[in-house]
Design a protein around this nucleic acid. Structure first.
Lengths: 193, 193
DNA sequence: TTATAACTGACGAACGTTCGTTAAATTATG
DNA sequence: CATAATTTAACGAACGTTCGTCAGTTATAA
């Protein structure tokens, strides 16, 4: 399907150059066509962008939901660390998350509203699942007694810091070390001893 | 000085729209002149951008260095939490850090090299100071025994996650709660008990 | 044949940039 | 002190280029 090729190329250029910096001619050239031909598949630049955005959102959301659905949930140490690994893997094997990250934090001004909605949507869902898990783990005395929201926010913070390191991303060793350090301190901070 | 007014306006538009999305005519209009007049003060868009970048770098670096120089260093809990507060205050009282953050992670492609150099420079300096402090605190048995780099990376992770929340920044309460949660778990993770 | 998807050509608008000019401010000179 | 020379900072006009978009045309395939 040609429109998927276009979306792939668009994803790439939007990720590298941002909305304003990515041009339809570059995207078209990557697929081997003229920029005007894009209009046979999309209404315009905004339409193309929003479709890419929704694909990226779905990729990210479904990967994360799937992870939590197949995990057994009796071992927070494995589940949480596995989630961090999942984020790293997702980031490295496709560009969707980098695109998503860039547009979450620095959206094109005229689409800020619509993007913000999607971001909040995904965020609430992931947070809700995590909070629920933490609630169970606390009740089962697998981690330290506290409000469930506390480890949830702290863990989301670890995820964010790893994501930033990935975006920055020119130093594989530094990433490994930062992950190890953040995880070690985080886990010590929420585990019973 | 007119060129400072131009740099202020440029900082604003570069921060909101990115390098490619910010136009010289907008910037000029903000200062009450035509875009051609900018060329009396700067060689071109790149020159203007790089000067703004270096100002932003200096603002950020000197604030952080100053903080660590005036802190007494015998109380890691206060010093570290104070640093997080400093980052939040800096972020909220001037635009330099938001600009810096955007350009660190999503630089305009043709200036990636030069920006990367500046980013690494600032990062190494802050990390070196922190690592040194942690080393002392560990030796003084004020925090848990470990390699100094471990709490350093973990703390930098907390800083990053707070910065991301600030960029995202439409929810004051969420910021407070995330800071509280991350800090609580972090501190429990590195403190002696 | 009919629909789809690519093409060519052209559009107005905006971009960063350069030019030549003007008026004001500053400095140097008599 | 007054005048001439120079510098500064702004300007309008235009440069060539690229942008996103639309209209009309051709080729492909069911």
């Amino acid at each position: 399907m040609k429109s998927n090729e276009i979306k792939d190329a668009a994803l790439k250029y939007f990720t590298i150059h941002g909305y304003e910096g990515a041009s339809l001619s570059q995207i078209a050239e990557e697929v081997g066509m003229k920029k005007q031909s894009i209009y046979a598949h999309f209404k315009g630049k905004d339409d193309l962008f929003l479709q890419v955005l929704r694909d990226a959102k779905e990729t990210e959301l479904s990967s994360k939901l799937q992870y939590f659905s197949k995990v057994d949930s009796k071992n927070p140490e494995n589940d949480l660390y596995g989630f961090l690994q999942l984020v790293i893997d997702l980031f490295q094997e496709n560009e969707h998350i980098k695109f998503w990250l860039r547009m979450s934090f620095f959206p094109p001004a005229h689409l800020e509203k619509e993007i913000g909605q999607e971001v909040i949507d995904i965020e609430e869902k992931v947070q809700a699942i995590l909070e629920c898990k933490f609630h169970d783990w606390i009740k089962a005395k697998l981690i330290v007694e506290d409000e469930a929201i506390t480890p949830t926010y702290a863990f989301l913070g670890v995820v964010d810091s790893i994501l930033l390191e990935l975006v920055y991303g020119n130093d594989e060793k530094r990433l490994k070390d930062k992950l190890a350090a953040s995880w070690k301190v985080f886990w010590r901070g929420i585990s019973q001893e």
